[in-house]
Design a protein around this nucleic acid. Structure first.
Length: 645
RNA sequence: GCUGGCGUAGCUCAGCUGGUAGAGCAUCUGAUUUGUAAUCAGAGGGUCGGGGGUUCGAAUCCCUUCGCCAGCUCCA
């Protein structure tokens, strides 16, 4: 038999007989590696350890340290799940079961729903099967023969997949009683699966098509070690504790009222003060950066939305029109047409461009009933919206300035990790978009160039553009490492054209301006939700609804406590006095639960020395401060919008 | 919108197979005068999400409707 040459990642190469397996190669390098290896990569193709290698090439062993290793491991865990389910519930029919970013799932068709108890049983069965160390056996079938086999087994969903996707000879994997049509690769045997947990069962649809069979999806996660699994589970717990819906209630920030309707937000006083601070900050910054503030109505004639093209491209997201007198009126889903009308209300010269119109514009969008989610997905929300009308010469600089502005704003709120996406159109699906292909390409180039000149890394995503133009989206990474899409900068040739916008150029002739739509926070509601979760309700001082609370030790010191309260209030510090007839400990506890940054305990000593005993919500007792000293310090924290102190 | 689960006092929740609603916290009143995460006692508070049905009798069973939750699908 001929020898082949296998090149390893470190550049060395070795000769092996043809048909050698990756496992054998690993063993020749070292028993440790052979034991750790899960799969292999031969010339960029992932294969099982047991797969024979037929020709010379590069070989890389996939071990638990790589993302690919984890993905394969989780995919194999999904198979283990299916094997356990089929063992316990012969009436379940497996659909698909892929790995995901955080674990894996498997979809089943079954008449009866799985219950929480079932989940525990399935997990125990998985444990048992893992201990049995079942091999993941790769088998091949000619398509027709394989189809017949799956048909006999009654696996109609698998048959459907085989019909659609299978090669003339396809591979399948057997794990215990479970046989799955699958490309692989898989780990060698189930005994490798050490740490996993089933998390939830939820509905899904066969092939994601809501008209198709309802499926039951079992979610789980798997890690190489118990420690990593526990860390992940802890993180889920932490996320639950930070849930903005829960904190919104606990901290009395906002509510959603059954009587008013889903997806409509009520900002309570404490949420309201935070919103005011956010808006004040933004308004100051907008003015500094040459924006002009405008206000526009919430409804307008339906005809306006015909002109703008929204009726054509955005209808399913809009509230139904309102019949009024002899015309129909539309609740606005976007602010752009209104800002356009303001632009159009005067003859514009190139000298006054770019015109930057900004508004906290409240819009209403129809969302399907099952998709609303706290503050993050609602039917009525306020965008920190702006539209920039620019000449072709200045538009790129405007786009770049928007990106800088967004980063400045997000950093102020303590976010420092971002991911940038350039969303472009899908030229294959032209019906979704409006405008000429040349304009789309020019727009994309402009956005791309703005990012490149800033050395900003970004991902390009096709088919994600708005109907009127491509866009740059900035996603931020929060304290728990989760990704949120907030800022967006969108390019638009289309609306200026639809509305016949003009400016008079240096040549005395009319020209068409280019429009940039941009939102930095995205929506004030969603941003608030993200902020709550990011800070876990413990807002920085400048945003805290109550910045300090004065706690007199007993009735005797209430007068002095009032004096301190008044003095701080004079300095525009949001301060409260808690003179309830409760033990100091009880009042401290309440203040802690409300995440009030500073507690000021006052008693005999403090009164005599004209100061306070400071307690911080994060580190506890911080000793004596004079009132003046405290006041100056806090004022500075507020004025600099400090995130740490 | 679809699949599954859920809806009991302001909040968190208990209430077994139908017999007429309960706890803790919060609120109010009184006592206590407090030194860094819950002082004690008493009181008030619910048409059991809404509507309809089965039954002698429904928080409990059935139908319907609204809402919430986990997903699917779609988005700031």
């Amino acid at each position: 038999m001929a020898n082949i040459k296998v090149t390893l990642p470190d550049g060395t190469s070795k000769e092996f007989p043809q048909g050698v397996t990756a496992r054998e190669v690993a063993q020749s390098i070292g028993p440790g590696l052979a034991k750790a290896a899960l799969a292999a990569k031969v010339d960029d193709r992932l294969v099982d350890l047991a797969a024979p290698i037929e020709s010379s090439g590069a070989l890389q062993l996939i071990t638990p340290t790589s993302d690919e290793g984890l993905t394969i491991y989780r995919h194999s865990s999904a198979h283990l799940l299916a094997a356990a389910v089929l063992d316990l519930f012969p009436d379940a029919h497996p659909g698909i079961g892929p790995p995901t970013d955080t674990g894996f799932f498997y979809d089943f068709y079954r008449e009866k729903p799985f219950t929480e108890d079932d989940l525990a049983k399935i997990e125990a069965k998985m444990q048992e099967l893992a201990q049995a160390d079942l091999p993941y056996e790769r088998v091949y079938f000619p398509k027709e023969e394989g189809l017949k086999l799956f048909e006999q087994m009654g696996e109609f969903l698998k048959c459907e997949l085989i019909e659609e996707k299978a090669e003339p000879v396809f591979s399948a994997y057997r794990t215990g009683k479970f046989l799955d049509f699958c490309r692989g690769p898989h780990i060698p045997s189930s005994g490798r699966i050490k740490a996993f947990k089933l998390l939830s069962v939820a509905g899904a649809h066969w092939k994601g098509d809501e008209k198709s069979h309802p499926m039951q999806r079992i979610y789980g996660t798997a890690f190489f070690s118990k420690k990593e699994l526990d860390e992940y589970l802890n993180q889920l717990e932490e996320a639950k504790k930070r849930d903005h819906r829960r904190l919104g209630k606990e901290l009395d920030l906002f509510s959603i009222q059954d009587e008013a309707g889903p997806g409509l937000i009520f900002w309570h006083p404490k949420g309201g003060i935070i919103r005011k601070e956010v808006e004040d900050f933004l308004r100051d910054e907008l003015l500094r950066q040459g924006y002009q503030l405008v206000y526009t109505p919430h409804v307008a004639r339906l005809d306006l939305w015909k002109t703008s093209g929204h009726l054509g491209f955005y209808r399913e997201n809009m509230f139904a029109p309102i019949q009024l007198d002899d015309a129909e009126y539309q609740l606005k889903p976007m602010n752009c047409p209104f800002h356009i009308l303001i632009y159009k209300d005067a003859r514009r010269s190139y000298r006054e461009l770019p015109v930057r119109l900004a508004e906290f514009g409240t819009v209403y969008r129809y969302e399907r009933s099952g998709v609303m989610h706290g503050l993050l997905r609602v039917r009525g929300f306020t965008q920190d919206d702006a539209h920039i009308f620019a000449t072709p010469e200045t538009v790129e600089a405007e786009v770049a300035a928007c990106v800088d502005f967004a980063l400045l704003v997000l950093r102020t709120f303590g976010f420092d990790k971002f991911e940038v996406e350039l969303s472009t159109w899908d030229p294959e699906d032209r019906a979704k978009y409006s405008g000429e292909p040349e304009l789309w390409e020019l727009a994309e180039r402009t956005l791309e160039s703005a990012l490149k000149t800033r050395n900003m890394p970004y991902k390009r995503i096709s088919g994600e553009a708005a109907f009127y133009g491509p866009k740059i989206d900035i996603k931020l990474v929060d304290a728990l490492g989760r990704l949120w899409q907030l800022s967006t900068v969108q390019f638009d040739f289309f609306l200026p054209q639809r509305f016949g916008l003009e400016y008079v150029g240096a040549d005395g002739h009319p020209h068409q301006p280019i429009m940039v739509h941009r939102a930095l926070l995205g929506s004030v509601e969603r941003f608030f939700g993200v902020l709550i979760e990011h800070y876990a309700g413990a807002f920085p001082v400048w945003l805290s609804p109550v910045q300090a609370i004065v706690l007199p030790i007993s009735e005797k010191y209430v007068d002095y406590a009032w004096k301190v309260t008044e003095e701080l209030r004079e300095a525009k510090i949001r301060v409260q006095l808690d003179d309830r007839n409760e033990k100091l400990n009880a009042r401290i506890r309440d203040a802690q639960l409300q995440r009030i940054p500073f507690m000021l305990v006052v008693g005999e000593r403090e009164m005599n020395a004209e100061g306070v005993a400071l307690r911080r919500r994060d580190t506890g007792d911080a000793g004596f401060r004079s009132v003046g000293e405290f006041k100056t310090w806090v004022r500075e924290l507020i004025d600099t919008r400090a995130n740490k102190w």
